[in-house]
């Protein structure tokens, strides 16, 4: 389990990194935290001609708030997010999700950009990005473009980013006070990727629900935004009956696959169970 030979570059700037990607014309791989890419290299499942390591570009790691958005440099470590007071205050759902990403020693190196660019459908960050309607900024030869979560994830481990583009920033709308949130996950062991996870955010407004946001991990080839389930809540409020109905609807909205850990039927069932639990907990959080 040793990687194939490759060229290695650790550019000091983004422009240099982009030039390198261009030079290798699709045969280079971007190396971020390496927590997903390195295992693939060690198994020789990934066999790039070159690695372009972003770890020496200091300007890619930051957490800032701008116009109601929390913005993350792509190379911001999951560990930094976990301990960030800004994230705890303004994006508590992301903080909760971070605790589910592997283990602390994994989060030491793993990055938010890598987690999203890797597009593992069982990963938590893509689910949060999808639930919150976040966006990413990609920089390529033609400059920068903003890609909405719904346009980003194509299928298993595949995004709409071009091979010569680098994801440089992740933007998530900050959570208003009064909102409730929860990430409910079922995994076989602590630190494993989700069998199914549901990211939920609700903004109650008296007996009504001003907004509900729901997205899945593990319930199909991409994270699924459960819009029709959200609509039930936005229409009927956050009553037990509406939550049950939303949970039932959620299960109809996903088309999971079977693998050795879980059958499609079981994943669909979990989607309903976890949606209900996530909504109930989010509601409790909202009511403090």
């Amino acid at each position: 389990m040793k990687p194939v030979k490759f060229d290695y570059h650790a550019p000091a700037s983004l422009d240099e990194a982009l030039a390198l990607l261009r030079r290798y014309g699709g045969d280079a791989k971007i190396l971020a935290g390496g927590q997903s890419l390195m295992p693939l290299l060690n198994f020789r499942l990934s066999r790039p001609a070159a690695l372009v390591d972003l770890n020496r570009i200091p300007s890619l790691a930051y957490i800032e708030e701008h116009d109601g958005q929390v913005r993350f440099g792509a190379m911001t470590r999951q560990r930094m997010i976990e301990f960030s007071p800004l994230v705890a205050r303004r994006l508590p759902l992301l903080r909760e999700a971070t605790k589910w990403v592997g283990h602390l020693p994994i989060r030491t190196r793993g990055t938010i950009g890598g987690s999203i660019a890797h597009a593992d459908p069982s990963a938590e960050y893509p689910a949060v990005l999808t639930a919150l309607d976040g966006e990413v900024v990609a920089r390529g030869p033609k400059g920068e473009r903003v890609v909405k979560a719904k346009d980003l994830f194509v299928t298993y481990l595949t995004t709409s980013l071009e091979p010569d583009e680098i994801l440089v920033e992740v933007r998530l709308p900050a959570t208003d006070a009064g909102a409730g949130f929860a990430l409910e996950e079922f995994a076989r062991r602590h630190g494993d990727f989700a069998i199914v996870a549901i990211a939920a955010l609700v903004v109650p407004d008296g007996a009504r629900c001003r907004a509900a946001r729901l997205a899945t991990a593990g319930a199909g080839p991409v994270p699924v935004r459960l819009r029709a389930a959200e609509q039930i809540l936005e229409r009927d409020g956050l009553t037990d009956a509406a939550i049950d109905a939303a949970a039932g609807r959620a299960a109809e909205l996903v088309s999971p696959d079977s693998d050795i850990h879980a059958s499609a039927d079981y994943r669909r069932h979990l989607t309903a169970v976890l949606t209900r639990r996530a909504l109930r907990r989010a509601l409790r959080v909202a009511h403090g």
């Binding site: 290695y8 650790a10 390496g34 927590q35 390195m38 390591d53 602390l104 020693p105 030491t108 190196r109």
Partner: peptide, 12 residues
């Protein structure tokens, strides 16, 4: 900070 040394390159 704790990290895995099997999924990191020496050069890094």
């Amino acid at each position: 900070e704790a990290a895995r040394s099997c999924i990191m390159l020496a050069v890094q």
